[in-house]
């Protein structure tokens, strides 16, 4: 019973904060809403027993990627008036509502059941070790490809940000 409560409670707040990210007018507020969203999502992962994934969700996503977003917002440093997008019209609200309802419906159709307790109760004691063993044996090739992807990202970002000589 408490499993259901925790999950659906978290899910509700996650949805609220995601809607806030897209609808709020001030970009810094949107970034903070994103932080809350990702934090709660890490909570969902932790609740399902994926503690390692929850930890790196916070370290990488919340602690690095949103910091990047915030840096960009702060660097660009626009006038307060320019920061705000115009008030959304009624039809924009309606579209958002329809999209959310659509996703909820798709989710409902594809779920086996609404009982989340089943997944949470299969928690294994040492998630990090299991993830490590699987990653370095079965998923070795994707792991090495990740390093190439990171290399590409490094080269790309330097290319974008460097002043041309």
């Amino acid at each position: 019973m408490s499993d259901q409560l925790v999950f659906w409670g978290l899910a509700g707040f996650i949805t609220l904060s995601s809607v806030a990210v897209v609808t709020v007018r001030n970009p810094v507020t949107a970034a903070v809403a994103l932080v809350i969203n990702l934090f709660l999502l890490a909570g969902v992962y932790a609740f399902q027993g994926a503690d390692f994934v929850a930890a790196i969700q916070i370290i990488v996503y919340t602690g690095a990627i949103v910091v990047l977003f915030l840096f960009v917002i702060m660097i660009l440093n626009l006038d307060p008036e320019h920061l705000r997008s115009p008030r959304p019209r009624i039809w924009e609200h309606l579209v958002l509502g329809v999209v959310i309802a659509g996703f909820a419906y798709i989710g409902y159709r594809f779920l086996d059941s609404l009982d989340v307790g089943k997944v949470a109760s299969n928690r294994l004691p040492d998630n990090t070790y299991d993830v490590a063993m699987i990653l370095f044996s079965n998923y070795l090739w994707p792991f090495e490809i990740v390093s190439i992807l990171i290399l590409l990202a490094i080269v790309g970002s330097v290319a974008i940000a460097k002043k041309p000589k």
Partner: peptide, 25 residues
């Protein structure tokens, strides 16, 4: 009590950045 003690600490160190950034902004 966390099994992933180190990662938890790194995660919280990351969160502390927002205090600095948001206040300055």
């Amino acid at each position: 009590q966390v099994n992933v003690g180190f990662l938890f600490i790194l995660a919280m160190a990351g969160m502390a950045i927002y205090g600095v950034a948001l206040s300055g902004w």
